[in-house]
Nucleic acid binder design. Structure first.
Lengths: 216, 216
DNA sequence: CCTCCCTACGTACACCGTACGTGTGTGACC
DNA sequence: GGTCACACACGTACGGTGTACGTAGGGAGG
């Protein structure tokens, strides 16, 4: 093969493989075959499979495009950051759980954190409050992405989820579930995401501010 | 062994195994050995490993104790539901990612949904709004649990995460990260969780209500 | 030229999920 | 009691996995 087999090429091919065939289809042998080489050749560039998946996560995080404008209103900056996060998850839908399930092993991906924290400070939160604000928003976004990932993976397996028979629901005393069944079945992930995001932003807006001095 | 090897026993033993040795240590052979039997005996009670892990998730979800009082103030009910969710995650810390990464395959675990929706209605949200409110809170809780799971698993691997050298951070232009490094290193997961939860509750409190009629 | 090292690649091993066949015990029915 | 059927425990075997290790080739520096 003309390709010189670098760590970066390996990682990018791994991402393609995950997106095409799902995470369960990724093995060192399959990945090597995809690159037209032997499985053991990969180990010259990557210490083991776990490190490979860490590198995949890092690669995806690094590829996140941050359009947040530090000069803009902090509310708009929060929206922008949250949406950028979601956008990268939509670019690599089947890799989301890979990224989410490994905690970061490198300092890469600290640029979003920096932006989030400066945004929190711009909103008037300092010290530990800034960190808590960031974590609250991040956790919400994270949960939304996990939810969406479950949905997309279920769609891929053409699994429409559990049968929800109205009669059964009534029998089990789940009357509210039955009443709201149409709304529960509909999945407007975009609208749901924006709803929760605006919820958090409005709550932050109403929050009393800490001063830089008392923060800690 | 005197134990009669039932599906329930298998699932409970699987949970123990996950909690003791982590999800990667769970194989049909190891699990069978734990039960003093052969690997293939398990297949008389469980169709395959994926179904076993689904059953593990279902078992854990079913074991959730819901203390929410429908008669109480809806804010307190939201707190109660969110904390119950988190409590079960703390009971099975190393199983959290197993539960989270599989979408529900059965109608079990609908009782929390029922409670959440009645709570949303008690708060004055109806129809699609009730569902959106529930999803916003659930997604926040979900993200928090995933974050905490990453932390605990990292602690288990005695991996303190990426090295964050203040000098490097400055060099990379991450001045806010460097400034807030102590707060970032500290992980008061309890306080962080409660902070975000109160944020959401206060936002819901301030939200205009839909009537049951206009809800759709 | 020789030498050294980096990389590709094959082989081998322990382990995995699970299809399939076999044996054994237990209950139903005559 | 005899016999039949069936459920379940268990062994074997196959294809796949991650990766330790050995070998071979090719390019760089002397």
């Amino acid at each position: 093969m003309g390709s010189p087999l670098s760590r970066d090429l390996i990682v990018r091919t791994a991402v393609e493989l995950i997106e095409r065939d799902g995470i369960n289809a990724v093995s060192m042998r399959r990945l090597a075959a995809e690159l037209g080489t032997g499985a053991m050749s990969l180990y010259n560039h990557v210490p083991n499979k776990a490190a490979l998946l860490d590198a995949v996560a890092e690669h995806i995080l690094t590829g996140m495009e941050l359009a947040a404008d530090p000069a803009a209103d902090w509310r708009e900056a929060v929206r922008s950051l949250a949406r950028d996060f979601r956008a990268v998850a939509h670019r690599y839908p089947r890799s989301v759980m890979v990224v989410v399930s490994r905690q970061p092993h490198s300092a890469v991906g600290m640029r979003p954190v920096e932006l989030a924290l400066t945004t929190a400070q711009a909103a008037g939160f300092h010290g530990r409050a800034a960190v808590q604000v960031m974590r609250a928003v991040v956790n919400y976004v994270l949960g939304s992405l996990v939810s969406e990932a479950s949905l997309t993976e279920a769609r891929w397996a053409s699994d429409d989820g559990p049968r929800l028979d109205p009669a059964e629901l009534d029998a089990a005393g789940l009357v509210t579930v039955r009443e709201l069944l149409p709304a529960l079945m509909e999945h407007d992930t975009e609208a749901d995401f924006e709803f929760g995001l605006e919820l958090l932003i409005s709550a932050l807006d109403a929050l009393p501010r800490t001063t830089a001095d008392t923060a800690g």
